[in-house]
């Protein structure tokens, strides 16, 4: 109760400050929340951007594909590096170094490779999501007690059974954390990609509104995007909580 009361207080405080600050400034650049509300209503009622739904769906689809690829690639590469000690020792530092490079520097070359359509956004979302997942899987395979693997083998477990019944549950906690970070970054990758250059998607609409100084519409679009992101994060945290109860 107190947490939500606090949240409400902070939120209304921020909105009040925003309103006051915006009214004092240039209305073209600074929109007060009172002006955003009608824009939001127009947006959701499909009056300002009638094709909003298509853009939302496109962005959601790009995120889903980018994330699926990041999970598959991250789990695969992470397991390969974690399973082979020599391979892991050779490549893990390179991976960590690549992760430290601001990923946005790769985006121009991704656009050259994949064009302005969805593919380059998916590639960028994948690139951002792939690293934290790979590193989490790698850390996870290392934190599994090797004795448990020996025990499983003594009961005749095949390599696949060892993975499914020992490694996976043993690293679930770390893995889920990585999957959640990966999702957040894949979402960021896709939307940033759209803002930087695209023909469709939420990022494009945001860029469009912003470029035309339709500031109220711009803020309304950002709010809708925020809902999309928060929804994905809530889903991820539900999965994480389930996994947390299951392990340790």
């Amino acid at each position: 109760m107190t947490t939500s009361a606090f949240r409400l207080a902070i939120l209304s405080g921020v909105l009040a400050l925003w309103e006051i600050a915006a009214r004092a400034g240039n209305p073209l650049l600074y929109v007060p929340p009172s002006a955003v509300l009608p824009s939001l209503v127009n947006l959701v009622a499909l009056r300002s951007y009638p094709d909003l739904l298509e853009h939302v769906l496109l962005t959601a689809r790009e995120i889903a594909v980018a994330y699926a690829l990041a999970v598959a690639g991250g789990v695969g590469v992470g397991c390969a590096l974690g399973g082979h000690r020599v391979l892991g020792r050779a490549y893990a530092p390179m991976l960590a170094a690549l992760y430290a490079v601001p990923a946005v520097v790769w985006y121009p070359s991704l656009m050259l490779f994949f064009g302005l359509d969805a593919a380059s956004k998916i590639a960028f979302g994948f690139l951002l999501g792939f690293f934290p997942i790979t590193l989490a899987v790698l850390a996870g395979t290392r934190q599994v007690n090797p004795h448990l693997v020996t025990v499983a083998r003594s009961f005749g477990a095949s390599p696949l059974a060892v993975f499914a019944k020992v490694l996976l549950p043993g690293m679930l906690f770390t893995l889920v954390g990585g999957l959640r970070t990966g999702l957040a970054l894949a979402v960021i990758g896709v939307i940033v990609g759209e803002v930087l250059g695209a023909k469709a998607g939420m990022g494009t609409l945001i860029n469009h509104a912003y470029g035309l100084f339709r500031t109220a519409d711009y803020v309304a679009l950002v709010l809708v995007t925020l809902v999309l992101i928060v929804t994905s994060d809530v889903l991820a945290s539900l999965v994480e909580r389930r996994a947390r109860r299951w392990t340790t």
């Binding site: 025990v151 003594s154 019944k165």
Partner: peptide, 19 residues
């Protein structure tokens, strides 16, 4: 190799699966 039809092993560390 391990033959669970004939041999079962108990180790000093019980090695129970914590989950």
């Amino acid at each position: 190799g391990p033959d669970p039809r004939r041999v079962a092993t108990v180790f000093q560390d019980p090695g129970l699966f914590p989950w």
